[in-house]
Design a protein around this nucleic acid. Structure first.
Lengths: 330, 330
DNA sequence: TTCAGTCATGCAATCGATTGCGTAAAGAAA
DNA sequence: TTTCTTTACGCAATCGATTGCATGACTGAA
């Protein structure tokens, strides 16, 4: 079987506690002794059993990432997986492992399992789980929220993109290009991040401009329908900020069907810069949400809290606008 | 602190080993005793410490998933994250947790950490890790490969989509629609799954038809260039099978630029049915790779091996063709 | 009534580390 | 040289379960 700390100790002619100490750098050990121990570890191909280590130390060296996927789609979305990648990178660099679990309807149970049974050292949670009932169970267990939670009243550490600022950026960009009559297309109006985007959109409109928000059910078809309807009114919008790429797809189709030229007659900016945004016709100007950075910052914040016991902290990441043809009237 | 098995035992007036036995259903316990123990567990909100359990039993109740991401992109790809979701679903249903780690260049180290230190019960590995050097270290540790490994000589359990069959399906579909001169566009010719697709493509061509394979660097731009070049030869292809959506995007652009009508003058079928494939102009006929099923089957196979110690097994999943406009000449 | 054979449960070792306490040896101070 | 600190390391308890062995109680057969 695999060599244990005792095998190493015996071979090196020392006590296992000494081996443990060199393993953890926790005490002053003679160079000579260290050498013997290192040699023994190498000869036996010793790998410390992290399970035993966890039990003894109370630290598991693992973090739990809970995702909130109603269905396979949400889990698979690019947003999440890039963030997850970044989180794992940071964790791996610090010698931590990442346990993922899909919360969904059973988020409470998933979180309890991770905390109470699996004994992870810390959690990354989705905003949807941040409710008083769950928070009570979590107590002062260290966690960071990946995304801005709904209730501003609850104190928590979180990291999110600045959706409000992103929407402002989009509107300002369109205004700068000379577009007028800017509408907002798409998005489930119930979702909190959509509300923030709409808020930013509204606040960036010039004085006197009437906001026009066209919610959709999320499909491009519905976006196409909504956009087509708006474009055929007496005073059609001169530009759209789209809540996501699918909405932008629907919009482009509607414009094409109506013979409206983008970007000459209609400006389009979309949230999210997915791989294909750049290959539409015309290529879409996009508010880039840096999901990798989001994950990285979340993990960094988590380890900061874990290692230095810092206070709660909220981080809003600035978004950037990537100009492409769909809004390039000049 | 959290209640332990001893607290439960004391409150129920029994020995901790009895509690352990009802917990694991490993012996005949009186109904009355069980009741007392359940009551005590409930009163104390007892959650078994899976770390201690692992140490004692030698089973961690965790599986490790290694992914091979050269960069953030690979990790984030829809392919992977859907599979991961499915894997986690299956694992959760069986009370297992999933530990993910990005192998990359250090895959060997990652695997060793998972096996030897973290003590996962089983592994899901990417085909790229299935090399003799690594296999020697893995020994008879149970693992399943998510994807068909390069070397057919090595015995292993794996699950993959039938790429060869998928390509045949695409060619047959195009032939059935009356297209002639079918070319294959895109894909890194070094990748093994691409080779399998090309093989299927070639074998499905009618006798005497000359295969034409146009490799690209993976970008739509390169696909556009390659497609445009081919379309301007004396005997241009009448249809394309594209290795992925990005290649198909490039192709559509090239056709549009050259004034070639799809699907009337040119048929297009693409591998992968990503969310946007359906929203291109025209919508793309696609060979659907069911990544969720892929993950699910992989996990199922893993638990089968784990619980019933079955022999190695290879599973090839049939792909399906989703007809859309891009190949609908009739 | 006795004896063998379950049944239900307790005892204590064990898994592989960590860590507080104790101590011999070495070095410093007097 | 004696005494006082450090330094380097060993001893043994501990973390919270699991599990082989032992045993008393009970059941049924002879």
């Amino acid at each position: 079987m695999a060599a244990t700390i005792h095998d190493v100790a015996k071979l090196a002619g020392v006590n296992s506690s000494t081996v443990s100490r060199v393993l953890n750098g926790k005490a002053t050990i003679t160079g000579e002794t260290k050498e013997k121990i290192y040699a023994a570890m190498k000869r036996l191909d010793y790998h410390p059993n992290s399970v035993a280590r966890s039990l003894a130390s109370g630290l598991s060296g693992a973090i739990g990432v809970v995702v909130d996927a109603q269905d396979a789609e949400a889990f698979s979305n690019v947003f999440f997986s890039r963030s997850l990648f970044a989180i794992e990178q940071v964790a791996q660099a610090r010698g931590y492992n990442v346990i993922i679990t899909n919360g969904g309807k059973q988020a409470a149970r998933a979180i309890e399992t991770l905390m109470l049974e699996r004994k992870v050292d810390s959690l990354i949670l989705p905003p949807s789980t941040i409710k008083p009932s769950l928070l009570a169970k979590i107590g002062d267990f260290p966690y960071v929220v990946l995304g801005q939670p709904d209730s501003a009243k609850l104190s928590a550490s979180w990291v999110d993109n600045n959706n409000e600022q992103g929407a402002e950026l989009a509107v300002q960009h369109l205004l700068g290009k000379g577009y007028q009559g800017i509408a907002y297309l798409g998005g489930n109006q119930g979702a909190d991040f959509v509300k923030r985007r709409v808020k930013g959109y509204q606040s960036a409109l010039p004085r006197g401009a009437e906001p026009l928000v066209l919610p959709t059910d999320g499909t491009p078809e519905d976006a196409q329908r909504a956009a087509a309807a708006a474009l055929q009114t007496k005073a059609p919008p001169g530009a759209f900020v789209c809540n996501d790429n699918l909405a932008a797809f629907g919009l482009l189709k509607a414009a094409k069907a109506l013979g409206i030229a983008v970007p000459r007659e209609l400006g389009v900016v979309t949230f999210d810069n997915y791989p294909l945004a750049e290959y539409t016709d015309p290529p879409l100007t996009a508010v880039d949400i840096d999901t990798a950075l989001l994950g990285e910052q979340t993990a960094q914040l988590l380890f900061q809290r874990l290692e230095r016991k810092t206070a709660n902290q909220q981080i809003l990441l600035e978004t950037a606008l990537i100009p492409r043809e769909s809004s390039d009237r000049m």
